[in-house]
Simulated scan of single mutants.
Amino acid sequence: MTTTTTERPKAYPPPVEALLPKARKLTAKLGEVPSRNRLMTELRIGAPKARAVLDALTAPSDQTDNIPAATSPNRPAVVPAEATGDSGQQTREQTEFIAETTAGTAPLSADVVKPESPQVATSVDPGTAEQPKPASKPQKSVKTWPVLLLAAPAFVAIWSGWVGLGALTGFGVVHPLPGILDGFSINTAITLPIGVETYAAYALRAWLTTTAPTTARTFAKVSAIGALILGALGQIAYHLMSAAGITTAPWWITTAVACLPVAVLGMGAALAHLLRTDSSADSSGS
Results as ranks from 00 to 15, higher is better:
residue 231 G to R: 00
residue 151 A to D: 04
residue 257 V to W: 01
residue 201 A to V: 07
residue 246 I to Q: 04
residue 208 L to W: 00
residue 39 L to N: 02
residue 81 A to M: 06
residue 198 T to C: 12
residue 220 A to T: 00
residue 39 L to G: 09
residue 108 L to C: 10
residue 271 L to S: 12
residue 31 G to T: 06
residue 272 A to E: 13
residue 31 G to V: 02
residue 250 P to R: 03
residue 20 L to E: 03
residue 57 L to G: 07
residue 276 R to Q: 12
residue 41 T to F: 07
residue 126 P to E: 13
residue 204 L to V: 11
residue 278 D to C: 13
residue 159 W to E: 11
residue 191 T to N: 13
residue 204 L to A: 10
residue 176 P to M: 05
residue 76 P to R: 00
residue 9 P to H: 08
residue 131 Q to Y: 11
residue 162 W to R: 09
residue 255 T to I: 10
residue 75 R to F: 15
residue 68 P to L: 05
residue 151 A to M: 01
residue 181 L to M: 09
residue 15 P to V: 09
residue 126 P to C: 03
residue 19 L to V: 07
residue 144 T to Q: 02
residue 12 Y to T: 12
residue 227 A to W: 11
residue 73 P to M: 04
residue 199 Y to W: 06
residue 241 M to L: 04
residue 280 S to Y: 05
residue 6 T to Y: 05
residue 284 S to W: 04
residue 235 Q to A: 14
residue 135 A to C: 04
residue 145 W to K: 05
residue 51 R to G: 14
residue 261 P to V: 07
residue 121 A to M: 11
residue 122 T to V: 12
residue 31 G to R: 02
residue 163 V to N: 08
residue 220 A to S: 07
residue 204 L to M: 09
residue 122 T to Q: 13
residue 124 V to T: 14
residue 29 K to T: 13
residue 82 E to G: 08
residue 151 A to T: 06
residue 71 T to W: 07
residue 7 E to H: 09
residue 251 W to Y: 08
residue 93 E to Q: 09
residue 112 V to S: 09
residue 252 W to T: 10
residue 286 S to T: 14
residue 156 V to N: 00
residue 117 S to A: 15
residue 226 G to I: 06
residue 239 H to S: 12
residue 140 K to L: 11
residue 212 A to K: 04
residue 271 L to E: 11
residue 142 V to Y: 00
residue 252 W to M: 02
residue 199 Y to T: 07
residue 178 P to L: 01
residue 263 A to P: 07
residue 146 P to M: 02
residue 213 P to A: 05
residue 131 Q to E: 15
residue 51 R to V: 14
residue 37 N to R: 13
residue 32 E to A: 11
residue 89 Q to P: 12
residue 137 K to R: 14
residue 87 S to Y: 03
residue 23 A to M: 01
residue 78 V to C: 00
residue 273 H to L: 15
residue 137 K to S: 15
residue 64 T to C: 15
residue 278 D to Q: 14
residue 7 E to V: 15
residue 14 P to E: 04
residue 254 T to G: 13
residue 62 D to F: 14
